[in-house]
Design a protein around this nucleic acid. Sequence first.
DNA 1: CCATAATGTGTTTATGATGCTCACATTATC
DNA 2: GATAATGTGAGCATCATAAACACATTATGG
Lengths: 148, 148
Amino acid sequence: MATTSFQFSVAAHIMTALADHNDEHVNSAFLAESVNTEPTFVRKSLSKLVKAGLVVATRGKHGFCVLARPAAAITLADIYRASEAPATFAVHNYPVEKTCRTSSNIKKIMLDILPEAQNSFEQVLARTTLADMVQRVRLPGKQTRQAK
Amino acid sequence: MATTSFQFSVAAHIMTALADHNDEHVNSAFLAESVNTEPTFVRKSLSKLVKAGLVVATRGKHGFCVLARPAAAITLADIYRASEAPATFAVHNYPVEKTCRTSSNIKKIMLDILPEAQNSFEQVLARTTLADMVQRVRLPGKQTRQAK
DNA sequence: CCATAATGTGTTTATGATGCTCACATTATC
DNA sequence: GATAATGTGAGCATCATAAACACATTATGG
């Protein structure tokens, strides 16, 4: 890979900033300033969040973005899936050497394990809601960790 | 990224093949045939496994590789860490916009969550040992899943 | 003691996904 | 109809990965 994707990280940033200013009819230029990047780049990420049903964006003059649901009803797992970040690992795809037991079966086994590990990873993300994120951003000193 | 790294997947293949033939004084050419790639590429991966203390390789004429411990004492998590695969996600690194709460704090929060999610991911890998892998390769029909 | 044959590793090249930018279409307000 | 927002397609630069090659290191054994 070029670098490990930070689409999820950027999406989480956008969503947190949006949740922190949810009643202010914020637009992509405002969010871009927070992330410190181009409005276009933010909109690319935003459009995925819109398609996933996490954000509602209105178009036309004075268009703006709002959360589609309360911040407490959106988790980091929702944002991760919406951000279309690559899976935690990929299974190699070399031709199978039929005379070898391992070569003949390893791919299926790995493809069996991948979703389990992926799911466990996402379960941790599901423990943190956007409301938690906003709280932590507003009270950076206090560690407002939720129960495990 | 070019593609999501499959270093872990290849390392798991190598280790499973090695475990399946652990008493046969197998070399990198044999393993390369199983993976269907170049011996050099296998050795690159192997050398990481050696450094991690999972494999012992003897050099010189008739050099070969063996597991450093019994297959039941090596888990996929050990192999994952040894393979130096990239983390499940990266945190973006744009300059902080100081006037924004989210921008000022988001990076720390994400860097706090990343290891938790990463750890959970690796915990699932830790449930499967190399001995399990060999068993599944030898009995591809039966699903020999261990307890959760 | 030297040829052989294995591992170990540094360098290089090609590829391709990603990050990023620009241009422009679409949409809605005033 | 001018303006200003989102949405998106196309293209470029970058950079980690995969792959290939050359060669150093190490040990066997005739």
